[in-house]
Nucleic acid binder design. Structure first.
Lengths: 184, 184, 184, 184
DNA sequence: TATGAATGAGCCTTCATTCAT
DNA sequence: AATGAATGAAGGCTCATTCAT
């Protein structure tokens, strides 16, 4: 009779606890020792659940990608008209700005890592692609090009706020987005 | 008989040669040894011109920030009307997309590093701030908020292209930008 | 309902299954995890039957030493004249060359480990001694010195074949041994 | 102007100092840290001269193989008749018994390591082969098969003495060897 | 000025072993 | 009896940095 622990469930919990760490430190700067300390487990335990640092990171990217897609769907479920969708999306973004930023950092690390590798994991490239297009579909403005562009803008905005220490307020984004969609 | 008479000039040349390396590998993943090898100097030489890895990186950020500001000014010098400025800016961005991307990565690394540190270098925060507002001034559309937002959009667009393996073509950006400025 | 009723019997079976592993990988390179995996048990089970890696290995050495002595006796039982004994021994060696080689490796590991240790297990030193002299007695040529030397030669020959990728054929050994015993 | 140190010369010196360590502990049991401590250098220095543990070990094998071949040639140079050669070889072996034993252990480790590897270094396999045949040539008895067999016997004898705590005296080996060569 | 030898802390990972179940 | 989750020391190796030359 083994210890009563749901291996997969615990693995996911560990992943969740890693998110902020990876976002703040970056893949390369974050050591397994540091992770272990922060999660209050031993390094051995980490290697019991993941085959290595890279695997841990890849699984983290996969996990958050799936979860976010789900969350975004939830948030936009009630919104019917394109306008309502934009509003809902804006609120969604605003509420989780920090999270989004962290997510961006993680993705950036992930991509850079993939590009540097000679043999990038193809599965996760797809996951990301799917996420992007998924959000665009959820948004569902008439013009698909426009939909995707809105994402671009949001992405840029989040980053801008990071570099600029939070200065362009949400209202700017809101106003600009409406201007984009309705032309004035 | 030294390679180059002027100390500072040589130092800048070394910095320029580091740019791609830092952009591609990231601060944490790039070792002094690797830099030295790539620049065909010894690690000792590196430490002769810079007090350490961090100093080298900081100087690099400072250098590219200054240079870019200057380059952008040059590129937009001839353009008089806002429309011409937009066109010039677009061409400017298009020509140096890869460079911009690399620059973004370097800044990201820099910022993250600063944020993680307890004692961030204030001088460079200003430099960056100055860069951002500088570009906005150069662009000189009537609405300063709009000007700044255009930067945001460009930033987001460059990143989007990176994640999306170059898929949204420049025309999209061009079209959207005009839509933003002229409303339709 | 346990797999095998008898504790000791199962312990011996585990030991037998370890033999090739230890021979091929060497004591230091072989991990308990690896052993457990190969024997299709958990590491916990291993520690249930043996007090540790060293104990497991010691018991293995003891086991094969005893078994070989017995096997050699069996093989030489029918042979009456010295000549017949030599023949039988040669056949015995030839049949189990690989096994002998592996055995040599295990002993070597064992000895080295003992020598390196400050407190070598005296029991097993004796076992080995007994094995050597046992074989000599079984062989029973008139000259005991010669008998022991034959063992030496066989030992060297097996190793030679290993280093030399099987090149000196058995005939050489046979011819040389006869030459030793009969003088020409 | 770099430090005045002959890189290759120092590398060889480090190798020589490793010999006993590898012989006594075995490849797998000997850690780089231990080596560094014993040689009174830092691990970093070790990695400055060798690309890794395996490289260090391979170079060690190569070095001792070459050196021994040379030493054996020197020792047998004066001996003209086969008998004199045998005598010289025996003296040679006797003088350096411990060294030979250690050498055997190192070779064993080396071979095992090679066999376990999927891609063994072919260069060193040759070196060993060359050593074996080299010694046989130096010995130069009429019968090449016999010459090689003498080596086998010596090898076995050295090992036997190890297992048997020095018991078969050199005279036995001497007597048996003459018996082999002259028939009685 | 320029070199590269030297260092030792720290990184990722593996290991023998323990123990709750 | 049997499992496998958990541990932390130790292993191979890399790194920023120093310093004699």
């Amino acid at each position: 009779m083994p210890k009563i622990i749901d291996h997969d469930e615990y693995r996911e919990e560990l992943l969740h606890q890693c998110f902020d760490l990876f976002a703040e430190e970056g893949y390369a700067s974050l050591s397994m020792r540091r992770i272990a300390d922060e999660l209050d487990v031993s390094t051995g335990t980490l290697y019991h659940y993941f085959s290595g640092k890279e695997d841990l990171f890849n699984q983290l990217v996969e996990l958050i990608t799936c979860r976010d897609l789900f969350d975004a769907k939830e948030a936009l479920k009630g919104a019917k008209t394109p306008d309502e969708r934009i509003d809902a999306l804006l609120r969604f973004v605003e509420e989780r700005e920090t999270y989004f930023l962290n997510q961006s950092f993680i993705w950036m690390d992930y991509y850079r890592h993939q590009v540097a590798d000679r043999d990038p994991d193809p599965r996760l490239g797809e996951t990301l692609e799917q996420y992007r297009s998924g959000i665009a579909r959820i948004l569902d403005v008439r013009d698909p090009e426009l939909a995707e562009f809105i994402l671009t803008v949001i992405n840029g905005w989040v980053l801008q706020r990071y570099f600029n220490r939070g200065k362009p307020p949400v209202e700017t984004l809101s106003r600009m987005l409406r201007r984009l969609i309705h032309g004035r």
